[in-house]
Every structure is written in C-alpha cells, then in structure tokens.
Design a protein around this nucleic acid. Sequence first.
DNA 1: TTGATTGCAAAGCATTTGCATGCTA
DNA 2: TAGCATGCAAATGCTTTGCAATCAA
Lengths: 174, 174
Amino acid sequence: MAKKKAEEFQKEKEIFLDHIQKAGLRRTSQRDLILEIFLKTEEHLSSEDLYWLVQKKDPNVGHTTVYRTLKLLTEAGLAREVRFGDGKTYYEHHYNHEHHDHMICTECGKVIEFFSAEIEEWQDKMAEKFGFKPTHHSLRMWGICAECQARESELQSTPSGAQPRVRVKSMMGN
Amino acid sequence: MAKKKAEEFQKEKEIFLDHIQKAGLRRTSQRDLILEIFLKTEEHLSSEDLYWLVQKKDPNVGHTTVYRTLKLLTEAGLAREVRFGDGKTYYEHHYNHEHHDHMICTECGKVIEFFSAEIEEWQDKMAEKFGFKPTHHSLRMWGICAECQARESELQSTPSGAQPRVRVKSMMGN
DNA sequence: TTGATTGCAAAGCATTTGCATGCTA
DNA sequence: TAGCATGCAAATGCTTTGCAATCAA
C-alpha cells in the first residue's frame, strides 16, 4: 500500500520532469518541493493553502511561485482546477484519479466527490444533440450534507463547532 | 405575442415591487430603469454589460447601483447568477424560465442552454445516495460548438471573424 | 554564458464598502 | 422627518505582471 503510493509518486514526478523538459523549462528546488507537497496532500488545496504548507519546509518560497507551479502542474496533467464558489481556485489530483463531480455543503463546507456513469452518458447525448464537442465539464450541487441535516434536527444544544472550510459567499459559486 | 410579453413584464415588475415592499426597501427611478432594461434583454448580461445599456438611458446611474440592483433582482427571484469561466458574473432571467444548464463554446464564446430531465433525475439519485439535500446545482460543459467545428474544417480562408463574447481564461471557469 | 526562474512590489480586475448627500415613504 | 438609496472613491481579495537578481543547463 505504502509501496504502491511511493511508485505512484515516482510516476507523477517523472511526468512532471517530462513536461518541464519538453517545454524547455527548468527543474528547480522550489518546483520539486511544491510538487512533493502537492502529491502528499489528498485534499483540495487553494494556492494559499499550498503556500503555507510549503512555507513550513522552506520559508523562502514566494506566493507567486506557488501560483505559477500550480498552473504548471495543471498543464502537465497532474492537477485539475476546481471552484466551489468562495472565489478561490482549488486544485485536486488529476493523474490516475477518475473524473468525478462535487457536492458542496453550504453549511459546513464539506465537499463530497461522486461519479455517475449515467450522468456522463446523458451529458454526451445532450452534447451530440447540439453537435457540440465537449472537452470537459463541471457539475456541482450545493446543499446540506447528511451530518449537517442531523445536527440541525437536534435542538441546537451544542455551540456551532468547526469553521466551514469553504465559505460560500455567492451560492452560485463562480 | 407582443401582448403576452407586455403582460409578463408587468408581472415581473409587480414581483419586484412586492419584494421591495416586503423587504422594507424603496422604489427608485434607478431600480425601475435597471429592471426595465434587464427585462428587455434576453442575453446573459454581466453587471458591466447592463451598466452600459443603462448609461445610454441615464448617464447618472453608477456601477455600484447596477451591482446592487442585480443582487436585488436575484433575491426577488427574477434573475439567476451564472459563471462561464471568464471571471465575470452573468445574469439570466429566472422567473418563468425553466431550469437549464449550459454548454460554452471556448472558440466563439457562444452559450447553448439545454435541459435534460434524465440528468436531473440522476443528480437527485446521487444526492439521495449520500443523504445530501441539494438546494441548487450548476452543470456546464466546455467545448467546440457545431459552427466552430464546421468553420475549422474548412481551410481557414476567412480571417477570424467575431470576437468571443466570453473570453475563457481558465477552462475550468470559476 | 544564456535564458529561464524567482520573489518582491505593483498592477489588474471584478466586486464590495464607507460615507456624505439625496430622496422616498 | 427618518432612514434607505445613491455614487463616488477607496478598499478588498485573488491572481497576474514587471523587473532586477539568481540560478539551471
């Protein structure tokens, strides 16, 4: 299991180096570090999230470099941009990760990943109907997750606990 | 037909006035004008689009008021926010307009509205599976529309024509 | 050596807010 | 008259850019 992971990391690192080389770019310690931390972290990361994680290891890395490297990772096919509606761009793993969509709890900010083959099929059918050739898509549902529904149905005894991870400003999110 | 339209406009204006009254707000000439122009325009409008249309009728209306009024229209249920991925917020008619989703051409910027009962059903099923209670959702597909595919298959004789309405910076759009 | 990379500061952009003035109810 | 609305200017928040210094190939 841990071995499997190590192998995967290795593969993703190779992909990154490949991309860098093919694009005539250069390998740097900053890029290595940012990739390393990105790979290790399974959650959805904003540029700033990642920036702070990187800071812990090397306080000399700047915000700008994290932004630029995340774009690079996206180009290389290792990361994917997602927006949940709080104005920030988040990044999730893309390589070897099946496509999926998101449910976002507007109460606690939790993000649920899901996949439905049927929805994908019907999307393709709709596209075909319009002669539209889709390259990618984004499906997001906002609402209340099971836990928050449960919490709300209790008489609100406990003072509201954790902070929302994603503070949803505009419900229709970006 | 024109009559039907006039009646609909009337109804939407009433809804707006109702909302204003119930919220203890005030009717102003600016709000009237902005609503009027919003109703007349069928396309997706950004705050700035609407601002310029309003300017033509009354150069004294400020940007801020347009922003604030669009929020008001949204609250009243007359407008709905949409994002296509160019960083701006667009507004479309909501009252008496069936829910629909969007295909966005990354070539010419055209936006195709579509609706699929099957997709809606499967979404609900997925939500139920996770005990998630959805309030709303957003499904967008990016790709190349039929016209642009056709244009591209011709040898590119004509110099590229119209400007994209939506310039898609990041494909994954907001 | 050469040109890509970095990080700071400054700029961009869409949107929001503070506040004095104006106007509706 | 009370207090909501307006519009300007300034602030905000995320992201990008200019640029001199640094560093990989």
